[in-house]
Design a protein around this nucleic acid. Structure first.
Length: 707
DNA sequence: GCGATCAGAT
DNA sequence: CACATCTGATCGC
């Protein structure tokens, strides 16, 4: 598909099965310049030509429906408070990249490692029996909300689809198609599939020897596809691993020799890898023996990218065997961190409990590792070179870090001592990262809004996410690749739909904030909630000894108390620490005047959300304010206060002299807004970045968005 | 002692 | 539930 055409949507939705077809960036010949010798010294090396990989046959679940693009739409207007316009020059020298990878993810399981293991073992070695199982509703339950989203774009494409998946009876048929001729090779064994694909390749590209030249010049390039196939090629030529061995020894990495030799990683393959990619490759590859997450907690807090990487990790290895062992040693459990952090990897603590489903151990059967795997490892590695909000999980080996906004769950792991490259973020986030974490400015690169910036060969454009101040949506446009839009946390609004860059760009993969991806979350616009708060304060204020508390996070929800202050013409009290943060947010001077550090000056106090989360805590506060205030009225602005059975603009709870309002003020998109946004973007694939609504649908989210 | 990191709690 | 955070325990420098 032409990258710049306003393409029709190809969303494939399913109510009974889930397929993820993700396209990752891979190195393009043209972008790959001079790469003298693999080393750990500098990042901007280039190579004369990358080795090439054959396309692999993909295991594909496809829906029978193809969905049509409908854009743009005009959702309801929403006011914005925060903007930023700072610009920055960005110029990095890394190469761009673009492989493809088909992922398949089941749902209906509370544990990612388990489910992914299932997928990996079942789908990458899809014998008939297993394939049936995968499609069984035991694994894929009924439709999820994401289905609903996907179906929004469900104008059936008249062109049809030969590789369609039949949903008609709630089942799907897994088809494995030759990536070259498109023939159904499901019935063939792995080996026969490989042979088939190789033969097809030979037909189109001629003798292997021609393509397998060291510099790759004159090699066949699959039309419309950038392929990198040296590992597979190397299977059919004499592989000279000696320079690689020498290189490893020089780097003090001799212990990895055996693996490199076994994998027939030759000089060509190595040259594909940039500095950080090489490191990750080594670490990831060599450490990838057992794959297991040691607790559900880790999964809960796992950011999308880390999870995505995990999914990829699980799915990339068709040769990874799965062994369910009852006696899985807890000490051998691995976090995703362990695959990437290498020497920095933390020591695991003992006594970690896992449930039965966690007791899945994956081992790489070294004898089975084939070249496809190598390519996939490269794929992962290249992709995680661009990480968003995954500081917690991936510590090294990555030079480009994207922080969408300054909320703890996104910058977790980012510390003062961060030294693994450049952090890209908005100017507001940059200020906060500097102020609160102490990251020096030379490690922060401010990205301008609504303006293309080339980072490491990839065009990156940021847009205001209408989440908290400084939150951005990031559009990645790899050269010759398919655009990926990462929403971060966001609330869709008309301003987003108006962006010409977004309108013009055919998004292939949408990484979507699915926090409220459920029809029950159809909360009102922010303005309505703010008005409600103002009205409630006025209504409760008949008692002059009333203290009003408004909950807020480190950043976010500022609009609530700014608008309240303006409307009531009353100053609001904030702590000095809070004011320092507010000063970073680019608020208008006229708004800033409503804050006071003098607690006595105001009966409206801005407090951390957790401090008004329970009546117990508020009771404690009321005791402290005894005498001065006789009534406490607190406002908890959160989207979760809207949902099943909670359909009002605000719910009022009272316990004695303490009143608590739960108001559904959300900085995430409502279900309706998500629908509008998906319609507007009409992506080919959707990857949810948030997993909620219970363990079952967590996986279903992930799975069903990938269609 | 302090920073980093985790589990668990709200 | 868990938006996003806090707390306390532990580990390593």
């Amino acid at each position: 598909m032409a990258p710049n055409s306003n393409s029709k949507s190809n969303i494939k939705a399913s109510s009974s099965s889930q397929f993820l077809n993700v396209t990752f960036p891979i190195m393009d010949d043209d972008d790959f310049q001079d790469y003298p010798s693999p080393s750990f010294s500098t990042a901007s090396k280039t190579s004369s030509h990358p080795p090439r990989l054959k396309p692999h046959s993909s295991t594909t679940l496809r829906p029978s429906e193809k969905l049509k693009k409908q854009k743009p739409i005009n959702p309801g207007k929403e006011n914005r408070l925060f903007h930023e316009t700072e610009e920055a020059d960005l110029d990095c020298g890394l190469d761009s990249i673009e492989p493809t990878l088909d992922l398949l993810i089941p749902k209906g399981d509370s544990d990612y490692s388990h489910s992914n293991t299932l997928v990996e073992s079942k789908l990458l070695n899809p014998c008939e029996e297993e394939r049936e199982k995968i499609c069984d509703e035991e694994f894929y339950e009924g439709s999820s909300q994401l289905d609903v989203l996907l179906k929004l774009c469900a104008d059936v494409d008249e062109q049809g689809n030969d590789n369609a998946m039949d949903y008609s009876e709630g089942k799907c048929v897994v088809l494995i198609c030759c990536p070259i001729c498109g023939a159904d090779i499901s019935g063939l064994s792995d080996d026969l599939r490989q042979i088939h694909t190789n033969e097809c390749l030979d037909l189109v590209e001629g003798p292997t020897e021609v393509a397998a030249t060291n510099d790759g010049r004159g090699a066949y390039q699959c039309p419309g596809q950038v392929l990198d196939d040296s590992p597979i090629k190397s299977a059919r030529k004499v592989v000279d691993v000696s320079p690689v061995v020498e290189w490893l020894r020089n780097l003090g990495l001799a212990k990895y020799e055996e693996i490199f030799v076994r994998q027939e990683i030759d000089w060509d393959a190595l040259q594909c890898l940039t500095e950080e990619v090489s490191i990750v490759f080594i670490l990831a590859f060599c450490d990838a023996t057992p794959l297991q997450l040691h607790s559900h907690q880790s999964l809960r807090t796992m950011t999308f990218q880390a999870m995505w990487s995990l999914i990829v990790l699980c799915l990339i290895a068709p040769n990874v065997s799965r062994g369910v062992t009852d006696e899985t040693k807890l000490g051998t459990n691995k976090l995703i961190t362990d695959y990437f952090s290498g020497p920095l990897s933390r020591k695991k603590r003992g006594g970690i409990t896992t449930n039965g489903q966690n007791n899945i151990k994956m081992e790489i059967k070294s004898s089975n590792i084939n070249h496809m795997v190598i390519r996939h490892w490269i794929v992962i590695v290249l992709f995680i070179s661009f990480l968003q909000d995954a500081f917690k999980y991936l510590r090294r080996d990555c030079s480009h870090w994207f922080l969408t906004h300054f909320h703890l769950d996104h910058y977790q792991g980012l510390t003062r001592s961060f030294g693994h490259g450049m952090i890209y973020c908005s100017s507001i986030t940059a200020k906060l990262v500097n102020l609160k974490i102490g990251i020096p400015w030379d490690k922060i690169q401010v990205l301008p809004l609504n303006q293309k910036t080339n980072i490491a060969g990839i065009d990156v454009t940021c847009f205001d996410a209408n989440h908290c101040p400084g939150a951005i949506i990031i559009l990645f446009e790899p050269p010759n690749g398919k655009p990926v839009l990462h929403t971060g946390d966001f609330r869709f609004c008309e301003d987003l739909a108006k962006l010409s860059i977004l309108q013009a760009c055919p998004i292939h993969t949408l990484i979507l904030d699915t926090t409220y991806c459920d029809p029950q979350y159809d909360f009102p616009k922010q303005e309505a909630i703010i008005q409600f708060v103002i009205d409630a304060i006025q209504a409760e204020a008949f008692n002059p000894k009333t203290l009003f508390l408004i909950g807020s996070y480190t950043i976010g929800k500022e609009r609530v108390f700014v608008e309240v202050a303006k409307a009531l013409r009353k100053k609001v009290y904030v702590t000095a620490a809070k004011l320092r943060i507010l000063e970073c947010l680019g608020l208008q001077q006229e708004d800033m005047q409503w804050f006071t550090l003098n607690e006595q000056e105001s009966h409206i106090h801005i407090v951390p959300m957790w401090s008004i989360a329970s009546f117990k805590r508020m009771k404690h506060m009321s005791i402290q304010y005894m005498g001065r205030f006789s009534l406490i009225v607190a406002f908890s602005p959160t989207g979760w206060s809207f949902g099943k059975g909670k359909k009002s603009t605000g719910r009022r709870w009272q316990k004695g002299t303490i009143i608590r309002y739960e108001v559904p003020y959300s900085e995430h998109s409502s279900f309706t807004e998500l629908k509008e946004f998906v319609k507007f973007i009409s992506p080919v694939n959707i990857i949810p970045s948030v997993n909620n609504h219970g363990p079952d649908s967590q996986n279903s989210m992930v799975s069903q968005l990938l269609a």
